[in-house]
């Protein structure tokens, strides 16, 4: 029997106010008619209109999405492979180095990752552009994917795979028909994580992007360095809205499917009439 005291209620209220008020204020001010972002001059969607006219932003957004989709897809494949190797691979030469290289990027400061990749690209004479950003993003986000997937693989009952092998499937079939469907939720959340990390990344992209390809965070960063602007507020609001809708939908879907699973389990337990 838990006790919910006034102290708990207060700390939750203040805590969540702290987490959400800044974003709510940002959203509200994106509808401000005034160019001066701190003075309220009535409701307007003017900045959304201007944003849609701003070709530089639209181009950057397009590059960002392209990079995010490609890099997160490659990262998901590589990360899932890496997770499988880590959890199921057994012993092989350089295993310690391998797991080190999976975990190190998670704690590596972005400035160092960015700097080192840039020096590599220059060293091998690769022109900076979409390709280099994709390579960079794939590298660090595959590590996140592999952590997410391997935590699922660890809790995965290995005898399921063995049963598939016992029933005559090849190792690849066992993976495709048994393992993959079961770890699919982790793979999907790994992809989503990689996608968000890529969308979000400023520092690594700044190092690895060239003049031919600018991503949205780079564009936003150079704009906000000069101060607050209503157009950025509008852009932020759109991004917040997309994420919020996405996260809530995802949690509703997973809640519903877990409810359904519970109901099915209950129905299965009932003696058939």
């Amino acid at each position: 029997m838990k006790r919910m005291t006034w102290f708990n209620v207060t700390s939750l209220t203040l805590g969540f106010a702290f987490l959400y008020l800044p974003m709510i204020i940002l959203v509200i001010y994106s509808f401000n008619a005034s160019k001066l972002v701190t003075v309220w001059a009535g409701f307007s969607t003017r900045w959304y209109g201007e944003l849609l006219q701003n070709e530089a932003f639209l181009n950057a957004a397009w590059v960002t999405i392209k990079v995010a989709v490609i890099s997160s897809s490659i990262a998901t494949v590589l990360g899932t492979m890496a997770a499988y190797v880590l959890v199921r691979g057994g012993r092989f030469m350089g295993r310690t180095l391998f797991s080190g290289m999976i975990y190190a990027p998670l704690v590596m400061p972005e400035v160092i990752t960015g700097l080192s990749l840039l020096l590599l690209f220059i060293g091998i004479g690769l022109d900076r552009g979409v390709l280099t950003i994709v390579l960079a993003h794939t590298t660090f986000s595959m590590c996140y994917v592999s952590v997410v997937v391997s935590s699922r693989l660890v809790s995965f009952d290995r005898s399921l795979e063995e049963a598939a092998l016992d029933l005559g499937s090849s190792p690849w079939e066992a993976f495709r028909l048994v393992t993959l469907p079961i770890i699919a939720p982790a793979v999907i959340s790994g992809w989503l994580l990689a996608f968000t990390l890529s969308l979000d990344d400023l520092v690594i992209a700044s190092f690895t992007a060239g003049p031919s390809a600018t991503t949205l965070p780079i564009k936003i960063f150079s704009a906000v360095r000069l101060g607050v602007s209503p157009e950025i507020n509008a852009l932020s609001t759109i991004m917040i809205a997309i994420v919020t809708v996405g996260v809530i939908t995802a949690s509703l879907v997973s809640k519903r499917s877990s409810l359904r699973a519970q109901e099915e389990a209950r129905a299965a337990e009932r003696p058939s009439a």
Binding site: F16, L19, Y20, P22, M23, I25, L26, Y29, V37, T38, T196, L199, D200, L202, P217, I220, F221, V224, G227, V228, I232, N233, S236, M239, I240, V243, T244, G246, V247, I248, S251
Partner: peptide, 26 residues
């Protein structure tokens, strides 16, 4: 979910949100 939600929103935007709040005219 409310704690995790900000994870998914842009880091840059979350920092930016404070610029408007903390500035001298903020």
């Amino acid at each position: 979910m409310l704690v995790i939600l900000p994870f998914w929103t842009s880091f840059l935007i979350r920092v930016y949100a404070w610029m408007g709040i903390l500035s001298n005219e903020g």
